[in-house]
């Protein structure tokens, strides 16, 4: 059996130009390899600027790797083939505010992926949009709203609606849950888990919340200064972390009221 996603020695360097010194090569991500199965959830954790978002973007195709390869169902993912990648791997960004177009209604933004990737007619698209809005806890009438008319949490729901719209195989979410309202966050997590059960979607979550990771993830990948320093099953890492760094990251902060 081939894995759903096979990541092989994926890495990313940036070169910083400097007048005084020679060009400096900065390693955003040292070569990383791992596999993800259908229906599995992987959490990527690490401090700020440890390379989490870089890895997420490389997988989603939002950035090109310096070297390394990605295989989806055994097929290599081509660099330029956005359409192939867009349908199967969708990304939800941290900043829903910036990823939504302020000029378009929610309905128009949700229609875009359908226009490019399906043969639906106007009526079918409207129905699909109403359905997906309900799925993420919004109302069909939100389709006529502009992003600025929605609260932050509701904007994030729209981003998630846009991601699930095309029934992707993998959803990559970069801190998409952190800023959500508690009831929305629980609902979205429940929704994502239901979708996973029903359709076998796999998730890659970048998260710094040990509580959420413990609840949703099957595997955890720990990044430290651009290097993968630990990778394993969620329970194993919570119970027997090999690194002190991992232990600190997975520590559940003391509750506010005790």
């Amino acid at each position: 059996m081939t894995a759903l996603l096979d990541v092989q020695a994926l890495c990313k360097y940036y070169t910083h130009k400097s007048i005084w010194r020679r060009q400096r090569k900065v390693t955003a991500l040292a070569p990383v390899s791992f596999t993800l199965e259908r229906g599995e959830t992987l959490a990527i954790m690490g401090e700020t600027s440890s390379g989490k978002s870089t890895l997420a973007k490389l997988i989603a195709g939002a950035e090109n790797p310096s070297s390394g390869q990605l295989f989806l169902n055994g097929q290599p993912l081509q660099r330029g083939n956005f359409r192939q990648r867009c349908q199967h791997i969708r990304m939800v960004f941290q900043d829903s505010d910036a990823s939504l177009n302020p000029q378009l209604t929610i309905g128009q933004q949700l229609a875009e992926p359908l226009l490019f990737n399906t043969d639906m007619n106007t009526e079918q698209r409207r129905e699909a949009i109403a359905q997906v809005l309900k799925k993420v806890g919004l109302l069909p009438e939100h389709a006529s709203f502009y992003p600025h008319m929605l609260a932050t949490g509701q904007q994030q729901r729209v981003s998630i609606a846009r991601a699930v719209m095309l029934d992707p195989q993998i959803i990559v979410a970069d801190e998409a849950l952190a800023a959500l309202d508690p009831s929305v966050r629980s609902q979205i997590i429940n929704l994502l888990m239901d979708l996973q059960k029903d359709m076998g979607i796999s998730y890659i979550f970048v998260s710094h919340s040990p509580e959420i990771v413990k609840h949703v993830a099957d595997k955890i990948l720990i990044l430290h200064r651009g290097k993968m320093i630990e990778f394993g099953a969620t329970q194993t890492l919570f119970e027997q972390p090999q690194q002190q760094y991992t232990k600190l990251l997975l520590q559940v902060p003391a509750a506010a009221n005790n």
């Binding site: 949490g153 009831s183 888990m193 959420i212 413990k214 609840h215």
Partner: peptide
């Protein structure tokens, strides 16, 4: 509800099961 939804106590919920939440959406 806010206390239950705060995820202070994920040990109390089985992993991958539904988290406690309030039904419905914040009204417009």
């Amino acid at each position: 509800a806010m206390l239950r939804m705060s995820l202070r106590d994920t040990d109390a919920v089985e992993p991958k099961t539904h988290l406690p939440t309030l039904p419905g959406a914040i009204p417009t």
